[in-house]
Each structure stands twice: as structure tokens, then as C-alpha cells.
Amino acid sequence: MLSLIERWLKASAHETQEYVYLTSAAFYGVFTRPFYRHDIVEQFDQIGAGSLTVVLLAGLFTGAALASQSGLTLDQFGARPVVGRLVSASMIKELGPVLTALMLTGRIGSGIAAEIGSMVVTDQINALRALGTDPVRKLVVPRVLAGIFMAPVLTVIADFIGILGGWVIARFQLQVNSGLYWSSITKGLYIQDVWMGLSKPFVFGFVIATIACHVGLRTTGGTAGVGKATTLSVVAGSVAVIASDFFVTQILIALMY
């Protein structure tokens, strides 16, 4: 039993060490030559534009469901007109960033792990190194940059679409006046909320991309290993998003409120 725990602890420490090594190598790669501009642009397109549909749908239905549920609760206090305030605060501070990040984990986290994992098991990563290319600079840096910078953009879009979805429900189901809905949003929103909602996606984008790259690069065991790496990337990425959400929220509350 003790040796089992010892082995688990050693393996965890080794994984953490490799993860830290990869992230520091990626950080170094962001600021030093050579840069693979074409790959960076391609990843911004794939991760950003490619995830737009998923994020739009998730944001729209989340906002709509939130307005619907909030309407029922607010009715108990006769506060139905402030439904917009509740929807916007929830979307901007919490649901928008977290749900967008979870969508990205499913879409790009799995994609990155599967792509890099396949390259590992088919010797393409070794071929890259043999041809004089550093795989961290060529594969990891563009994906991490795209994750860090596209996650906030997608989150802002998800927030807006979510609030729009909430308006559709507020206007046509809850019969709340449009002017009242939009004014309650602007009245109830503080600058700290906006900072909170904008800061989190940077962290989530970084976490999702680095975990996916790390898991992909450590793939072993042929095609079955690629499948395992993909699953692990989504599971670890999702848990990391939710856990980092808690810690980032605590830090930002302590700093801003």
C-alpha cells in the first residue's frame, strides 16, 4: 500500500515537473527566435474562429435558460424587472468565462492532445527535431498564444450572446419591457465585474492549451494511447478550469472588492 502511494506521489511529482518545464520552455519560446508566424496565425484562426459556433450556441442557450429560471425565482419577490441585472452579472462574472472555457476544453483541448499525440506515436515529433525544429516553438507556443488571446475574445462574445438570449426570454416569455431589461444591465454592472470576467479567460486559455499540449507530448502506446490522451486532456482541462476559476475568483475578490 505504501509503495503504491509512493509510486503515485513520484509519478505526480514527475508529471508536475514536466508540465512546469514545458510551460517555462513555451514562455521562453514566446520571447525568443525563431518564431513560426504562419503557425501562430493558423492556430488563432482554428482556436478562435473555429470555436465561434460552439461558443455562440452555448452562450445563447445558457443566457436564455438563466433568464427563464431567474424569472421564476424573482417572481417570488416581485422583482421580475431586474432579471437583466441577474443575467448579466451571472454571465459576465461566472457563466460566460467558465462555460466558454469548458466548451474550449472539449473542442480545442481534445483536438490539440489528439493532434500532438498522433504526431508523437507516428514519430513526427522526432522527425521535427531531427529536421532542426524545436517542437515546443513550432507546436506549443502557437497553441498557447492562441488559447490565451482567443479565450477572452470568445468569452466576450459568449457574454453578449448570453445576455441577448436572456433578453429574448425576458421580452417574449417574462413580458419584461426591453428598455427595462437593458437599463437594469447597465445599472447593475460594476467595473470590477467586467475585470473579473475579462481576467479569468486569460488564465483558462493558458491552462487549457498547456495541459492539452503537455498531455499530447507525453502520449505513449500507439493509437489507443492517443485516445487516452484525448480523454485525459478533456478531463484534466475541465477540472483545472473549474479549480482555477475558484482560485482566480478568490484572488480577484481580495484585490478588487
Binding site: 531531427a130 529536421l131 532542426g132
Partner: peptide, 16 residues
């Protein structure tokens, strides 16, 4: 060193 080394991997390892 790799600038003067060419390596052919099992199965080719071409970039898909």
C-alpha cells in the same frame, strides 16, 4: 549537428 544529418524513420513519419 542535425544540419548535416538526414534521418528516415520507420513508416516515413511524414507530416500528415
Amino acid at each position: 549537428v542535425r544540419d548535416d544529418l538526414g534521418m528516415i524513420f520507420q513508416e516515413g513519419a511524414l507530416f500528415d
